[in-house]
Nucleic acid binder design. Structure first.
Lengths: 340, 340
DNA sequence: ACTGGCACTCAGTACAGTCGAGTGCCAGAC
DNA sequence: GTCTGGCACTCGACTGTACTGAGTGCCAGT
C-alpha cells in the first residue's frame, strides 16, 4: 500500500516537530503548527495508517506519536531537501583553516569544526594510506643494528617504525639502501608497492639480502598490512545535550563504541565524495549504536577518496542540516588537501 | 583541635564504606561492618565532631554521612596505605607491551591499560619534547619552493612540518643544508637548540641566508615554541559507572574538559616520578572538574621526567588502589622507554 | 568516657484522586 | 468516497496524604 501525499506531509511534520521539541507530537498540535488544511480528526486517521505501516509509534496510549527508525528513513530519502547553509556556517568553514600548518592541524581543526557546527560527535579519518603515494622514505640509523624507517606520503601523512636488523650494518650500506629504496618506491601508490618491495630484496647482493629482507617485512607491514588507519574524534560532550532521553538512558554503550578506532573507521568508511550515507538507528551494524544515527561521506579532491568523515548523534537529529554541513565540510577539506 | 585515634578510625571506615557502596553510611551500619569496639551512640558523637570539622557531611537530615573533599584529603594523607597490586594486575602490566612496535603503540597501550586497571579515565602524555634530544633531522623536497621538515627525537617521537621557501632551491642545496643542520643539532637537547639554530643562519652564505632563515623559523617553532605536547586519552566510558550520582548529575562539564588538550596536560603536568599527586574535587584548578579527582605522576627512567600520566574519576574513588596502579604503570613505562 | 533509650526528622514509597492531552471510532456532512 | 465534529475512553503526569524506617541528637545513667 502506498501513502498519499498528505500522509507523507503529516510524517514530515511529525519528524520536524519531534526533532525540534523532543516531545511526542499529537494531532491537534500538528494542525496548529502546520498548514495542513485538514482537521485533527483527519490527521488522526492518517497517523493510524502511518503507525500501521511502521513509520511512527506511540510511546504509550494517550501520548503523541514519535517517528520510528523507518519513519526517519523515509523522511531522509523522500521528504527532506538539503538545507542550505547559513552564512555564518559558511564563514566558519572558510575561516577554520587559518594557520593550519600541517596535516595533523587540518584534521584536528576539521573535526572540531564539524562537531561545533553540527553539535554532534564528529569523526574524521586521516587520508588513507591505501590511496596515497610514497613521497619519500627515510632510514635513520639508531644503532648499528637498529633503524628507524620513516615514510612520508603525498597527503602529508608520516609513519614511522623501528626496524631491528639481523646484524650490524654500516652507515654506507644504509645510505645505499636508502637510495635504492627511494628510487624504486618514491612516487608509487602504496597499494602498488608490495611487488616492488619484493623485487628490492631479490635484487640485493647476497651479503645484504638478509638485512634488506628484515627491512622489507617491516616496510610491507607499515605500508600495506597495517591498514589501521588513524582517526580523530571530537564533540563527545555533545552527547549529553538533550538530557538522558536520547540513547535510551545511558551513554555507556556509545562511549564504549567511540573508544574503538576500528568501530570509528567502520562508521565512516569510504563513500564516494558527493554521496552521503545516512545510517539510522537499527541500520547500524554496531550493536552499541543501535540508538544512534550516523551521517558520513568521503572527502578528497574531485572524485578520488582520501578518507571519510562524519558525525554521530541521536536518531532524533536534524538530518537535512547535518547532511548539508557534513557535505560542505567534506568538500572543503577535499579541496584544501588537493592544494598541497 | 585535634582528632583522636578513634575518630580517625571512624573517618577511615566512612570513606571505605562509602567508596564501596556509594551510599551515605550511618552509625549503626558502621559498627556492624567494622570492629570499632564501641556502640553506635559513641560513633554518632564522633561523627558530630567530624562533621563540625568539615570532614564529613549529611546530604540531608536523617541520612548517613558522606566524606567531604577535605575528608578524602585527610584520608589520603594520613589514613591510607598504598594497596599492593593483585597478581592479576601485576601480570596485566607486564603483559601489556607485547608487540609494542613504536612509541605510538606504547602510549596507546599504556593509556588503555591504565583505564582498564583503574576503571577510570586515563591520560598519558607523550614523552615531552622539551626533555628530549634530537636524533635526526630530515629535509624532504616537495617542490622547488617547499620542504618537509621531519624531526626524530631520541624518545621515538617524530614531528613534521611543512616549510615554504622564499625562492626556488636546488636539491643539492637542500642536501648540503641537511648535512649542516644535522651536524649542528643531532644529539642536542631540544631545549638547547635555539642558539645553535641561530648560528646556523649566521654562518650561511649570503645567497642562502634567506632560505636558511625561513627554515630556521619553522624549526624553532617546531622544536621549542610549539610546546603543545601530545596526550592520549582512554576510558571515558568509565565515567558512566556508578550511575548519574557521581559528577553531580551531568557528565557534560567533564566531557568538555577532556576535549581540551591543554586541560589534559594541566591535569598531569610534570611531577617527579616516585611522587604521586592527588587532587581532590575542589582542589582542581579547572572549574569543570570540581566534582572529580585526579591522581597523577611523572614517568621516566630513574629520576628524569619524560612526561606525565594519570587518571581522573569521581571524588568517590578507591584512592589507595588507584594510586598504587598509577605508580606501578608509571614505573613500568619509564623503564620500558629507557630501553630504547 | 561510654552507653541505652527516646523523641524527632525527613527521604522514599505507596496509594488514591484529579487533570488533560491524545486517541479511536462513528455518524453525518460534503 | 473523503473529511469532520463529537464523544467516550485511556493513561501518564501531577498532587496530596499517609506510612515507614534509617538515621540522628540529646540526655540520663553507668
Amino acid at each position: 500500500m502506498s501513502l498519499d501525499d498528505r500522509k507523507l506531509e503529516v510524517l514530515r511534520a511529525i519528524v520536524e516537530d519531534y526533532v525540534a521539541t523532543q516531545e511526542p507530537v499529537g494531532s491537534k498540535a500538528l494542525v496548529e503548527r502546520h498548514q495542513l488544511g485538514v482537521s485533527p480528526a483527519t490527521v488522526r486517521n492518517d497517523m493510524a495508517v502511518l503507525e500501521e505501516e511502521g513509520y511512527i509509534r506511540q510511546p504509550h496510549t494517550s501520548a503523541g506519536r514519535v517517528p520510528t527508525d523507518r519513519g526517519y528513513r523515509l523522511f531522509v530519502d523522500r521528504l527532506s531537501r538539503v538545507k542550505p547553509l547559513t552564512p555564518a556556517e559558511r564563514r566558519a568553514i572558510e575561516r577554520f583553516l587559518v594557520g593550519a600548518v600541517d596535516l595533523d592541524d587540518v584534521v584536528h581543526k576539521t573535526v572540531r569544526l564539524l562537531a561545533q557546527l553540527t553539535r554532534q560527535v564528529a569523526v574524521v579519518q586521516y587520508p588513507s594510506l591505501q590511496r596515497s603515494s610514497v613521497r619519500h622514505l627515510e632510514l635513520v640509523p639508531i644503532s648499528t643494528t637498529r633503524l628507524m624507517l620513516v615514510m612520508i606520503a603525498d597527503t602529508g601523512r608520516v609513519e614511522q617504525r623501528l626496524v631491528e636488523l639481523p646484524g650490524p650494518t654500516s652507515a654506507d650500506d644504509v645510505l645505499e639502501l636508502r637510495r635504492r629504496i627511494n628510487e624504486k618506491l618514491a612516487g608509487q601508490r602504496l597499494a602498488d608497492t608490495p611487488p616492488l618491495v619484493q623485487s628490492l630484496v631479490d635484487e640485493s647482493a647476497p651479503a645484504q639480502r638478509l638485512m634488506v629482507a628484515s627491512l622489507a617485512s617491516v616496510l610491507l607491514e607499515t605500508l600495506v598490512e597495517r591498514t589501521e588507519e588513524r582517526v580523530a574524534l571530537a564533540g563527545t560532550a555533545n552527547l549529553t545535550r538533550g538530557g538522558v532521553l536520547d540513547f535510551q538512558g545511558t551513554l555507556r554503550p556509545v562511549l564504549e563504541a567511540l573508544e574503538e578506532e576500528v568501530i570509528l573507521l567502520k562508521l565512516i568508511d569510504a563513500v564516494e565524495p558527493s554521496t552521503t550515507r545516512v545510517r539510522i538507528g537499527d541500520e547500524n551494524e554496531i550493536d552499541n549504536l543501535r540508538s544512534a544515527s550516523v551521517v558520513s561521506t568521503g572527502y578528497g579532491p574531485g572524485v578520488t577518496i582520501l578518507g571519510g568523515l562524519g558525525v554521530l548523534g541521536p536518531t532524533r537529529m536534524d538530518y537535512p542540516g547535518t547532511i548539508a554541513t557534513v557535505r560542505a565540510v567534506a568538500r572543503y577539506v577535499g579541496d584544501l588537501l588537493a592544494q598541497n
